[in-house]
Amino acid sequence: MNDLDLDSLLGAEDDEGPRRRSRVSSRSSRSRSRRRQRRQKRKGFLAFFVAVIIIAGVLGVGGYYGYNWIRDVAVPKDFTGQGSGEVLVEIKAGQSATEVAQTLVEQGVVASERAFVNAIGAAGKSASLQPGEYKLRKGMAASSAVPLLDPKRRLQTTVTVREGLRLSQVLEQLSTATGRPVEDFRKAARDREALGLPAYARRLEGFAFPATYEVSPKSSPDDVLAAMVTRYKRAAADADLVAKAKRVGRTPLEVMTIASIVQAESGSEQDMPKVSRVIYNRLNRTPQMRLQMDSTVMYGLGKFGIAATHEELKSKSPYNTYARLGLPPGPIGNPGDHAIKAALEPADGTWLFFVTTDPKRHITKFTDSEAEFFKLAEEFNKNHGAG
């Protein structure tokens, strides 16, 4: 074997070695690559699995709350049954059904606003809610609460104060209607500031306006009497009292005093402007005439009656218009709209006297003659004695 052949053999071995090592290295690289791919796949799967769990959790929680929300909207929370205990609920003027529902929820009457709104809507009574106080129970089904808010079930007491009553009579009536001591009303009647009396009113007499009032169990005597003064102010504004008092040459207090006498002395509404004219004619006459009204004398004595006795006419009271000139110190009762209007707008006439000749039939006759007056007085005595 020559040198060339030997070199060839050696060269052949050297060439084979690198190729063998290359194949081994390639297989190792592929193996590592596959392992990396497997690890990456495992990590990717794990990440995907975790993501799926998180998404499922989020969807589950959201679904739970979403379900509850939908359920609450579709089927609002509500109690069952008639409830128990006693709750006093006040509906204020102008409140909507939703606002009333809020009050009921706050006081534990119904479980949710929506339940009540749905129930009262289904009953067709959303527009029938009226202000006042109502007695309900805690934990009621909304459908059971609705009937208890019927206006007929309000706890208010209705009090109708008629025209011409004296303040003492009004306070007695209010005491009886509310069950509160009359002394509480008397005390409240003396608080001019709390009552909101107009500046020209010396006291409540004459300004406790006759009307129908609804008194709630929570109303204090101050509240009730203040409401009557407020009602008077509205009537005075409607009658334009202050401006018209100036036109007839009198103060607002004098007009109200005249109105109270008109109310007490008139046999009917139609007679009021004429009675008013007699009062003005006597006051404006020169020399001035005494009014000589039995109603004022009886008021000063704290008595009731349509004709004062000879002995009663000797009274030293400032309300004795037989003994004193001019008007008494203030109203002798609480006049209504018609009497106030008559005091501001007396009828035209020259009458100086009037006599209710037939009290039972409310017949009153007017004259400017003293001689005629005595004849009318005899007619009264005859009819009054016969009765």
Rank of each mutant, 00 (worst) to 15 (best):
Q270Y: 06
D271Y: 07
M272D: 03
P273I: 06
P273Q: 08
P273C: 12
K274G: 00
V275M: 07
V275S: 11
R277E: 07
R277Y: 09
I279K: 00
I279W: 01
N281Y: 07
R282A: 02
L283A: 08
N284Q: 14
T286L: 09
P287C: 09
Q288D: 09
Q288I: 07
Q288T: 12
M289Q: 15
R290G: 07
L291P: 03
L291C: 04
L291T: 02
Q292F: 08
Q292K: 13
M293Q: 10
M293N: 04
M293W: 00
M293R: 02
D294N: 11
D294I: 12
D294Q: 13
S295P: 02
S295F: 05
S295A: 15
V297Q: 05
Y299E: 03
Y299T: 01
G300N: 08
G300A: 05
L301R: 01
F304C: 02
F304E: 15
F304D: 15
G305R: 11
G305F: 13
G305H: 13
I306S: 00
I306H: 09
A307G: 00
A308W: 06
T309L: 12
T309K: 12
H310G: 01
E311P: 03
E311T: 12
E312T: 10
E312G: 06
E312F: 03
L313C: 10
K314I: 04
S315I: 09
P318K: 09
P318T: 08
Y319A: 04
N320E: 04
T321I: 05
Y322K: 12
R324M: 03
L325I: 02
L325C: 04
L325P: 02
G326E: 11
G326C: 12
G326N: 12
P328L: 13
P329N: 12
P329S: 09
P331I: 06
I332W: 05
G333I: 00
G333W: 00
G336S: 11
G336N: 13
G336W: 02
G336K: 05
D337G: 00
D337A: 14
A339Q: 07
A339H: 09
K341H: 14
E345A: 13
A347S: 15
A347L: 10
A347H: 11
A347V: 05
T350R: 14
L352C: 11
L352R: 06
V355S: 08
T356D: 00
T357V: 15
T357W: 00
T357R: 11
